Amino acid sequence: MAVQTATPPTIIVEGASKYFLRRNSHSFKEAFIGWLQKKKVRTDQFLALDDISFQVGEGESVAILGMNGSGKSTTLKLVSGVLEPDGGRVLTRGRVAGLIEVGAGFHPDLSGRENVYLNAAILGMSRKETDEKFDDIVAFSEIGDFIDQEVKHYSSGMFMRLAFSVAIHVNLDTLLVDEVLSVGDAPFRAKCAQKIKELTARGVTMLVVSHDMNMVQELCSRGIVISKGKMIFDGPITDAVELLRS
């Protein structure tokens, strides 16, 4: 049973299903030999998400939990618009900023500075808005002089810090976070968690996927547990974490 939100919904997921093709040829060599012999590579559909329904109210912080392969990240990608559902529908209201993958949207041959403007534009910020917030973005990211270096030379932690910093400085309504806060040192993770708390206090909606049970209990009040593509729980975060740990 899906939880009824106390505030107007920012995210609505209704009966969402998602299929992926699963190929039964196990290697490129086998596929190539099959092609030479004019054999068809067998494919079948894998149901990654099966009739998922939930709503997230304005200003709510909700964690999507589950074991590897359960469908957590697929759910987040449907909400972000990276993927489209094969069944049902997914609706969002307002400006959505997604940290789905570390460095997603970054061009490796551009500098950190150029990528700040590129990512800000993708997230809907004007050049003027980015100009006004640029110094704050760089300061929060702790990139320093590396801001003018090509990002292909960045570590995964530097990628994450800059991507997160851009996203949180957007005038956003919803923030989507998928495991990227697990990258980086403890002080920066603590700073990110504090920033998320400030955003939610301002009414920003947050949907997060993470295996860090301590972090989600600190940041979220509600948990949705997915198992093998099906939603099996939607309720208080402490109960969701206990269910997953059991």
Rank of each mutant, 00 (worst) to 15 (best):
Trp35Phe: 05
Gln217Arg: 15
Arg23Val: 11
Val241Glu: 11
Ala193Phe: 11
Gln37Ile: 00
Ser227Met: 11
Leu65Thr: 05
Glu179His: 09
Lys72Trp: 00
Asp51Ala: 13
Gly69Arg: 00
Leu181Thr: 10
Phe164Ile: 07
Gly157His: 10
Gln45Ser: 13
His107Cys: 09
Arg22Glu: 14
Asp178Tyr: 05
Ile122Tyr: 13
Arg23Asp: 11
Ala240Leu: 12
Asp135Ser: 14
Lys40Met: 10
Ser70Lys: 05
Val209Asp: 10
Ile143Gln: 07
Glu101Phe: 07
Val138His: 03
Leu91Gly: 12
Gln217Thr: 12
Met158Cys: 04
Leu36Arg: 09
Ser246Thr: 15
Arg161Ala: 01
His153Thr: 15
His169Gln: 05
Gln149Gly: 07
Ile226Glu: 02
Leu110His: 07
Ala16Thr: 05
Ser227Arg: 15
Cys220Tyr: 04
Leu65Gly: 03
Met125Val: 07
Ala97Pro: 04
Phe20Ile: 01
Glu14Lys: 15
Gly184Val: 04
Thr92Tyr: 02
Glu242Tyr: 15
Phe233Leu: 14
Leu118Cys: 11
Ala104Cys: 12
Tyr19Thr: 00
Thr200Ile: 06
Lys29Asp: 05
Val204Ile: 09
Thr75Lys: 00
Ile168Lys: 08
Asn214Tyr: 14
Leu76Asp: 03
Ser210Cys: 07
Ser227Ala: 14
Ser126Phe: 02
Thr43Pro: 00
Ile168Asn: 08
Asn24Gly: 10
Pro187Arg: 12
Leu162Thr: 05
Ile137Leu: 01
Asp109Phe: 14
Thr10Met: 15
Arg202Val: 06
Asn115Val: 02
Pro236His: 12
Tyr19Met: 01
Leu243Ser: 11
Ile226Gln: 02
Ala163Arg: 06
Ser141Arg: 06
Leu172Met: 13
His169Tyr: 07
Arg222Pro: 04
Thr74Cys: 06
Gln55Met: 14
Lys133Phe: 12
Glu142Ile: 04
Gly94Ala: 09
Phe32Tyr: 10
Glu218Phe: 03
Ser27Ala: 06
Lys77Arg: 11
Asp145Tyr: 10
Leu207Met: 07
Ile33Gly: 00
Phe159Glu: 07
Ile33Ser: 01
Ala97Leu: 05
Thr205Phe: 09
Val208Phe: 04
Lys29Asn: 05
Val170Ala: 08
Phe140Leu: 04
Ile224Arg: 02
Lys133Thr: 12
Phe28Cys: 04
Gly98Leu: 09
Thr174Pro: 08
Val177Cys: 07
Arg42Ile: 13
Phe164Val: 06
Phe188Ala: 04
Pro85Cys: 02
Tyr117Val: 08
Ala2His: 11
Ala48Val: 04
Ser70Leu: 09
Ala2Trp: 08
Leu49Glu: 00
Ser25Asp: 14
Gly235Pro: 01
Val216Asn: 02
Leu47Ser: 13
Gly98Pro: 14
Ala120Val: 05
Asp109Lys: 13
Phe140Gly: 00
Lys133Asn: 14
Gly112Thr: 07
Glu30Ala: 12
Lys72Phe: 03
Ser221Cys: 09
